[in-house]
Design a protein around this nucleic acid. Structure first.
Lengths: 218, 218
DNA sequence: TCAATTATAATTGTCGACAATACGGGCTTG
DNA sequence: CAAGCCCGTATTGTCGACAATTATAATTGA
């Protein structure tokens, strides 16, 4: 693999993306272009380019002549995302069942096994913390072979989901049942049963959402 | 309503957006920044800002150090979009059934009646041509009251769908059945039956997709 | 003649400066 | 004292120019 040529704006985007996801730049805080440009030692043009892309993946919001703010997190917005995920990833599972390649099935099963081992020997909590869960969903979405679906979930929503997971830092008690649900989805996909795969994936995500609703009701 | 303050980049975006949607700037063609900037009489900075937003709604694709191209249309990509729409608008219909307001129901029913009248007295073809169909879907999505869903469908995918409808210019023979399907969806939403609303909306969109698959198989 | 290479031209990425707009404090006025 | 206006300051939007990269044309050598 040839080292890809990266532009300055690319690097700035990556830097700010992780900084925002990990909360180093606080959610809801205003972004000062002059200050950030000075701190990162880049021109405002490059910084603005990067901010534009952050806006595209919903990590910041901009208003004309006012500026950019890091997106603020809320229970309501998180639940909205879960509704969207239920719809999109359900469809992704259906399409994956129809279009997945033999090689991808093997990779998916290996990923599932690796996750199972991790959860069994380590404590369950660290699984979700280290976004092993996202890896699984990511892989299925890729296997749908629907470029637009992949773009929506893996480019637009991916960072935002990571941000919630990172900052809300829930230690889900659902590690074991979630893994079971994962394995059912994989089975349906391996069987080429799109209808069933979609149903199982939607149920899985809906349970996650309900779990969050409960935990945040407190 | 107060006249909104628009920035130059906003106007350029609107101009280019309609130009691309309507094919005035050919699909697949390269965008020359110096030339366009001169023709629109704006600086390259404003133009690049606009191009960035065009990229965000998938009307152009950019590669580093190479430039931006207007997205190229294809049957495959269109079908991909229909899969995404089936998932997202299905969920939108479900949520609309749960969250729609009484006023929105009335508006929706009036819209449906207006469309029915148009189709009955004018010839059917013009209905879809003038994107009355998109209006209907747009309204339902709004009634879901899920901001992210609304953003995805009405900001990100909306222009692209208009572009396909405009440039592929199919004269659908499905005006009458489509209107029936619309009315069923409205009924389910008015009844507050989310499960049924989603099912009907998904079937509606799936039939549209299959119709396209047939017509483009030629 | 064709392939490879170099040189030239054009395009994109980046920068610093200027113009337009929004923010904050003090003042005026009721 | 509160509300509204005015003005200085800071921030964002816009511009033209330069640097880095890519595309194109010319040249050379086999």
């Amino acid at each position: 693999m040839i080292p890809i040529k990266m532009t300055i704006a690319d690097r700035v985007f990556d830097t700010l993306c992780t900084a925002i996801v990990e909360g180093e730049i606080a959610a809801g805080s205003k972004i000062s272009e002059p200050e950030l440009a000075k701190r990162l030692e880049v021109s405002r043009a490059s910084l603005r380019e990067a901010i534009g892309r952050l806006e595209a993946c919903s990590l910041v919001t901009r208003k004309a002549n006012i500026g950019a703010r890091v997106v603020s997190l809320s229970k309501e917005k998180l639940l909205e995302i879960y509704h969207v995920r239920e719809a999109l990833e359900g469809m992704a599972a259906r399409l994956a069942a129809e279009n997945i390649t033999a090689h991808e099935i093997i990779q998916l099963q290996q990923l599932l096994k690796r996750h199972t081992d991790e959860v069994n020997q380590a404590d369950c909590a660290s699984y979700f913390q280290r976004s092993g869960d996202l890896d699984f969903h990511y892989h299925i979405v890729q296997s749908s072979h629907n470029e637009r679906l992949i773009s929506l979930l893996c480019n637009d929503l991916y960072h935002l989901m990571r941000m919630y997971r990172y900052q809300f830092g829930r230690v889900s008690q659902r590690a074991f049942p979630a893994l079971d649900e994962h394995s059912y989805v994989v089975s349906a996909i391996a069987d080429g049963d799109g209808e069933m795969a979609e149903l199982l994936m939607r149920n899985h995500i809906r349970r996650s959402r309900r779990n969050i609703e409960q935990m945040m009701a407190a």
